[in-house]
């Protein structure tokens, strides 16, 4: 029973830390399935977290904060789109640039506007997202096994958490059951064929990066308005890259993305939990090893030792109409 309770606690924090990963990885999925590699997830998320913290901090309105986050993130996504679709620039270079611009600008603007060492003002009640209890959570809590699972694990999360998990099947549906999704996948595999069919490759890819921006915006807002009560500089701390790793780990498939993010979130939750607590049989595991594990797993996967991750075929290649 003791282990069961510990497990519930770990799974609960797994869900908490997985949400931004799921949102950012799904964001990357839209972009990369359309053939636009995006290593700027981290930067977009960071800029969105800052915009959310700043706007919600001033207005104390969570919805305005979320809107600002999505707007800023979409703006950066459009810069990436302009560079890689219209200007046919190098997509990796553009992504790197966006990460740096976001990392620098959030600190400089934060310091200039709020004078709190790069933080935004603490968010009050109206400015942040609150957790919601599912119906009958308190009544069911007493039932063994099912009770804790329902009231502690499934209930008591932010609306954004439920949204993130709902977006997984939604993305699957968009991608595999709609015309837009079919074209999106086609443009990532063979843009020439899409063009021949009389569909604009440019507009399709722009829509994909806008989707990416919107989702990164929600991910950023979750960080500064739900997980914590305000923006702290550098608060994404590599989550954008973990999400990227999860996306590859999931072989660019929506449902796999959720499981990959939950796995990486679980490792994260475990590494906090394991500090100072030796594991049975294995002994003391360095916390750094647990932190590096998502990256190591992704490298092993990429090396083709656990299945094979094949990226969208036209990924990273600018489309030239004719030459």
């Amino acid at each position: 029973m003791e282990y069961f309770e510990a497990l519930i606690v770990i799974l609960q924090s797994t869900v908490r830390v997985s949400v931004p990963l799921i949102l950012a990885a799904l964001a990357g999925l839209y972009s990369e399935r359309a053939g636009i590699f995006d290593i700027g997830l981290e930067g977009k998320m960071l800029a969105a977290a800052f915009a959310a913290g700043a706007v919600a901090g001033i207005t104390q309105n969570a919805l305005l904060g979320l809107t600002a986050a999505m707007a800023v993130s979409v703006a950066l996504a459009l810069v990436h789109g302009f560079a890689s679709i219209t200007q046919r620039g190098n997509q990796i270079v553009s992504g790197v640039a966006i990460n740096f611009i976001a990392a620098g600008a959030t600190v400089i603007l934060g310091q200039a506007w709020f004078h709190q060492g790069g933080q935004t003002p603490r968010l009050g009640e109206g400015g942040r997202f609150v957790t919601h209890e599912l119906p009958f959570a308190a009544e069911i809590a007493g039932i063994p096994v099912l009770g804790p699972i329902y009231s502690n694990l499934l209930s008591g999360h932010f609306l954004l958490t439920y949204l993130a998990f709902a977006l997984v099947p939604a993305t699957w549906w968009v991608l595999y059951r709609t015309r837009f999704g079919l074209r999106l996948r086609a443009v990532g595999e063979n843009p020439g064929a899409v063009d021949t069919a009389g569909i604009s490759v440019t507009w399709l890819r722009y829509r994909a990066v806008i989707c990416c921006g919107l989702l990164c915006g929600i991910a950023g807002a979750y960080l500064s308005m739900a997980m914590t009560g305000g923006f702290v500089k550098g608060m994404t701390a590599g989550k954008g890259f973990i999400a990227l790793a999860a996306l590859i780990f999931a072989k660019w498939k929506p449902v796999n993305v959720m499981f990959a993010c939950l796995l990486f979130g679980f490792l994260d939750a475990m590494s906090i939990r394991l500090q100072g607590n030796p594991l049975p049989l294995i002994g003391q595991v360095p916390a750094q090893f647990m932190q590096a594990l998502p990256y190591i797993l992704t490298v092993i996967l990429l090396a083709g030792f656990i299945g094979k991750a094949i990226p969208p075929r036209a990924g990273g290649v600018p489309y030239v109409k004719e030459r």
């Binding site: 810069v79 302009f82 560079a83 890689s84 200007q87 046919r88 620039g89 190098n90 997509q91 270079v93 553009s94 790197v96 640039a97 966006i98 990460n99 740096f100 611009i101 976001a102 990392a103 620098g104 600008a105 600190v107 400089i108 310091q111 200039a112």
Partner: peptide, 25 residues
């Protein structure tokens, strides 16, 4: 005091953007 060293990070990003990704603009 408004301008910390992080300004360089922005400049670095902008140089990468304009000299790299948008070099043919």
């Amino acid at each position: 005091p408004e301008i910390s060293r992080d300004m360089i990070v922005i400049i670095q990003g902008l140089v990468i953007l304009f000299a790299g990704a948008l070099e043919n603009m």
